[in-house]
Design a protein around this nucleic acid. Structure first.
Length: 559
RNA sequence: GGAGGGGUGGGUGAGUGGCUAAUACCAACAGACUGUAAAUCUGUCGCCUGAAAUGGCUUCGCAGGUUCGAAUCCUGCCCCCUCCA
């Protein structure tokens, strides 16, 4: 189009120029994508509901209408409207080393041109750029082609930091430039101590921080003891109940220890800075707050999509909630950081911080967003769904919870929570798709990797063994807690279960018996009226995997 | 200041005089099955009794009242929300 309109084509870099030249000569569209920055397979498909796209030269993603023909990798759409609208993510630069040039056409119309263009481009890349070339051809009858593309198992560490498990980096180019220049940056993660556990969802960002820490950057772990008392409105249908300072501090107490499972908190050379935002907020006056608030308009704050939703649904927005992004944003100023990392749900708050840093300190703050990890059942990880895996969960629990993961989440967990190379993860996905592997086996590996990371490989091994034995083979657990009874003799089952704390009430106990869950020394008890002659050492099962061994006081000495 | 809406079991949320210990969904629990603590199916899901149909007690913001009988009606109180100004 530009050529027809006489604008000529801009020179970009040798690879792109070459693609453009070939495109013009054969009158077929030719694209170019940086393979090292793609995730998974490169494919042509129709767009779906959830697709997003970041146009070339933009930083923000836009939604893609479903049903468009797009090029995409496993993560996001790379080009829209065939290849006419190029994406930012996989764009080719002078640094690109592995490039895929998609050339498209219509069978019977331009397929000959496509083949000619392919040959010409291959020749040019080889002779002019000195590259190695593989070509492939796909159409309806041959929908996939495997190219022997060499995959770099260990891309350079900076790229790994900036690519794997990242949704978006605002200010990416500048950040990358600074990192490559060897600058040491200050980056923080803020957590609100509204719950006593740090879970695998937090771990995604923490792992990213750990990578940066290992590269020598300064990591700040910010505990929002002040903001936690106010309550982030994020994605809460109703305004969150405010916690008392005591509750918040109680939760915060163990946070550092929990974060230490991932970060090298007390590193002798590069320790993590632990901060509390009460440090500055407790000292702020009403005047300070109002001056700060004057930097934004109500309309700007209401931009937040969650507020929009509440307005639409006629649900309340607390004034304090409106102010919340400001509080969180100011943390960036107080900490004098270069960057912040957080889940996508924090994007708005982090951007407010970016604005404040620019306004008050005239610097650029980079914002890195990471995906929100789903809980074991595929829904948002949240206490109320009981689908949370805590970083300090005991090895066996952690292992078991990972095993209860929905199959679709396996690769995502591998990607975000392990160091298993992406090529391998891709292969797993392919194997599962083709039914070549039982997802359970992959999950075992995942569980092993995760437990190893948060505990130790030894713990992981014993958890794996125990899981196979107790859960899969349904054998008795190795350790059964001994529960003392006040007396021996005959006990009605229901009373016995309650006394052993295997049931919460007699009704509960009766139910368990009726439902066939209760057994004594391996003998199932089905009659809720049964009377049990109790002997010490008896093993009673209340509910699945919940056992008690009877102990009696010596004086009673039953036999 | 004005008008209106609402507080129900772990959560969401129905129920406006007896059929309601209270629909439904989620969560939870058990069983079957399985590839796992997945999925699916079935059952359970206030407490105490009874072999069982059943019975008793406690529960629908709080406190009183009306009634043979109240989550449902009345009075007072507490709390929450929306809209208009």
């Amino acid at each position: 189009r530009r050529v027809v309109e006489g604008e000529g084509i801009p020179r970009v870099n040798p690879a792109v120029d070459l693609a453009n030249a070939v495109s013009l000569r054969f009158l077929v569209p030719v694209g170019a994508h940086d393979l090292d920055r793609l995730r998974g397979d490169f494919q042509v498909r129709y767009s779906g509901e959830d697709d997003i796209f970041t146009p070339l030269g933009h930083t923000g993603a836009e939604a893609v209408a479903p049903g468009e023909i797009v090029f995409a990798d496993d993560q996001a759409v790379r080009t829209r409207r065939w290849i006419w609208r190029l994406g930012e993510k996989g764009k080719v630069t002078e640094n690109s080393r592995a490039i895929i040039f998609p050339i498209d056409g219509f069978i019977g119309r331009t397929d000959a041109a496509v083949r000619q263009a392919t040959a010409e481009l291959a020749r040019a890349v080889q002779s002019l750029l000195g590259g190695t070339v593989w070509t492939g051809f796909v159409d309806r009858d041959m929908p996939t082609v495997d190219l022997p593309v060499p995959i770099r198992l260990h891309p350079d560490p900076i790229e790994a930091v900036l690519e794997r498990g990242i949704v978006e980096i605002i200010g990416r180019e500048e950040l990358e430039r600074r990192l490559r220049a060897g600058e040491r940056i200050r980056i923080y993660l803020g957590v609100d101590p509204t719950s006593p556990v740090i879970h695998l969802g937090h771990a995604v960002a923490l792992r990213k921080l750990r990578q940066l820490q290992d590269l020598g950057h300064t990591i700040i772990f910010l505990i929002g003891d002040f903001t936690g008392r106010i309550g982030d409105p994020t994605d809460k249908s109703a305004a969150r109940v405010q916690l008392t300072h005591a509750e918040v501090l109680e939760n915060a107490r163990t946070y550092v220890a929990q974060a230490a499972r991932i970060l090298d908190v007390w590193s002798p050379t590069n320790p993590v800075e632990i901060r509390y935002n009460g440090e500055w907020w407790d000292k702020m006056t009403a005047r300070d707050m109002i001056e700060l608030a004057a930097n934004f308009t109500v309309q700007q704050m209401l931009q937040r999509d969650m507020f929009q939703r509440r307005i639409e649904e006629n649900r309340p927005i607390g004034l304090h909630e409106l102010l919340y992004p400001l509080l969180q944003g100011y943390d960036s100023v107080a900490l004098e950081v270069d960057a912040e990392i957080g889940g996508t749900d924090q994007t708005f708050n982090m951007l407010v911080g970016r604005t404040l840093v620019r306004l008050l300190q005239n610097r650029e703050k980079f914002v890195i967003t990471v995906p929100l990890l789903e809980g074991t059942d595929g829904r948002k990880m949240s206490k109320s769904y009981q689908n949370v895996i805590g970083v300090t969960d005991p090895p066996f629990d952690m292992y078991g919870k990972v095993m209860s993961l929905k199959d679709e989440l396996i690769t995502r967990y591998f990607e975000l929570l392990t160091d298993v190379p992406e090529a391998e993860i891709r292969q797993m996905a392919r194997q599962m798709e083709r039914g070549e592997v039982n997802p359970m086996e992959l999950k075992k590996r995942l569980a092993f990797e995760i437990v190893s990371q948060f505990h130790s490989p030894e713990d992981a091994r014993s958890a794996a063994e125990r899981f196979a034995r107790e859960v899969q083979q349904r054998e008795l657990p190795a350790e059964i807690p001994e529960v003392p009874l006040p007396r021996g003799g005959d006990w009605p089952v229901a009373d016995l279960l309650v006394a052993l704390k295997l049931a919460t009430s007699k009704s509960d106990a009766r139910r368990l018996v009726e439902q066939g869950s209760v057994s004594i020394d391996g003998q199932r008890v089905t009659d809720p009226r049964a009377v049990i002659p109790v002997r010490p050492g008896m093993i009673i099962r209340g509910r699945r995997r919940q056992f008690a061994r009877v102990a009696l006081p010596d004086s009673v000495g039953m036999r």
